[in-house]
């Protein structure tokens, strides 16, 4: 029997939108607080781009060296921030996680924030994803990905190793 396209479980997504753009220290603290909440599946960091080089004008090609482009540690992973963090989208297992998540945000942020529930990260593979990853086999039409949580986390054309990390993989295995 040909298997149909897999759909992830009914999860809940929340956008945490602080009143200010976050410095790396605050972003690190917030992300760690969120990471400690049991039932968090995915986090997506968004914000204002911090380029390595100037891309327009007479200074094109000069290094920017933005002081906020720093390596931060979240859980057991370290990665370099490419943005000044403006919001964090969090996906959790079910409604019971929302309150602990909100409390984690209150601990992590020294100022007010919006806590909006909505649909922010796609849960199903789209044509572009199939174009990139393909089917698992001739008889299995699920997308050819080991971990489907990757879907919607990065642009299909971007390199995942620069923009994607799996936290707590060692604990799971």
């Amino acid at each position: 029997m040909v298997r149909t396209v897999s759909v992830t479980d009914k999860t809940i997504q929340v956008k945490v939108f602080p009143a200010r753009l976050l410095q790396p220290e605050t972003a690190e603290k917030l992300l760690n607080e969120i990471d400690r909440v049991k039932g968090v599946l995915r986090m997506l960091i968004g914000g204002k781009n911090l380029p390595r080089k100037i891309t327009c004008g007479p200074g094109t090609g000069a290094d920017v060296n933005h002081p906020d482009m720093r390596v931060i540690h979240v859980g057991d992973q370290a990665f370099e921030l490419h943005v000044m963090v403006g919001h964090v989208i969090v996906e959790v297992e079910d409604e019971s996680i929302l309150e602990p998540l909100k409390q984690a945000c209150e601990r992590g942020l020294p100022f007010s924030f919006e806590f909006r529930r909505g649909f922010f990260i796609k849960k199903k593979a789209t044509l572009t994803d199939y174009g990139k990853y393909g089917f698992r086999s001739r008889t299995d039409e699920r997308i050819n990905l080991d971990d489907e949580r990757m879907l919607g986390m990065i642009d299909p054309h971007a390199k995942p190793e620069e923009r994607f990390c799996i936290i707590g993989a060692e604990e799971e295995s």
Partner: peptide, 22 residues
């Protein structure tokens, strides 16, 4: 002179306007 981004953004934590080119 270029990369003027900042007018309509939230302020940074230190209360200054975001400057992409620092």
């Amino acid at each position: 002179g270029c990369t003027v981004h900042g007018h309509s953004l939230r302020l940074q934590e230190d209360g200054t306007m975001f400057d992409m080119l620092d």
